[in-house]
Amino acid sequence: MRDMILAVCGKGGVGKTTVTAVAARELCRLKSTKALVVDADPGGGLEMALSIKPNKTLNDVRKELIEEVKEGKRDERDLAVSLDYLLAEALTEVGNLAFLSIGRPEDEGCYCKVNVLLKDAIAGLAGRFDVTVIDAEAGIEQVNRRVMGEVDYVLLVSDTSTKGIRVGETIKQVADRMVKGEGAGLLINRVLDERAVDLIKASTFLEVIGWIPEDDTIRRFDEEDKSFFDLPDCPAVVSIRNAFEKVGLV
């Protein structure tokens, strides 16, 4: 059933959550596509952008499983089916779209069995949806953890800053080693002058798949705490949709 797992990665503050939220908006309109959207950023910005209140986070699920391991009354098969149940409880559904928040991890000691189960379960969960979009944590750390190994396409988001582009390049290099899929592309955000895009194209080895103009509508929705599901077809949304069409997500 699985068609694609796409991870939205990049430096902090470049607009990954905006891009993921617009992906959710687009996928929600494709009624026949079952989509899973994962907020893997512990900051939880995506749930705010989409005005979603998750029932529980993946970290809550992890804590519950750890309790069961501590009790020692469950073998691996029981834990696996418990996890299946808890993951279903953690999904917040909006039409054809299901939302899963990773939550803020806390130091709970080493529970490798639980972590392995979680990794497998998320991959399994993603496999039951047509598409999965992950709003990744800023930087490179997450690229080689949890569900990231199963990612088919790494969408690198950057603003026009050199630092943002360099972080994108580093992520691509790590992803080449750690991620199953070979697809990766750069989406440049908050472009004020199209000539900046040409300069970036000339200075990076990344494939530039599109650019998003600076857009007051996005800024206004953000400031007014409005759900991105309700965004109109403003220039930024159209640009992001074009990029997703290009990579085959929508």
Partner: peptide, 11 residues
């Protein structure tokens, strides 16, 4: 079907 063996529950 979702099962929670530790709670003997079913959803």
């Amino acid at each position: 079907v979702r099962t929670r063996p530790s709670k003997h529950s079913l959803w």
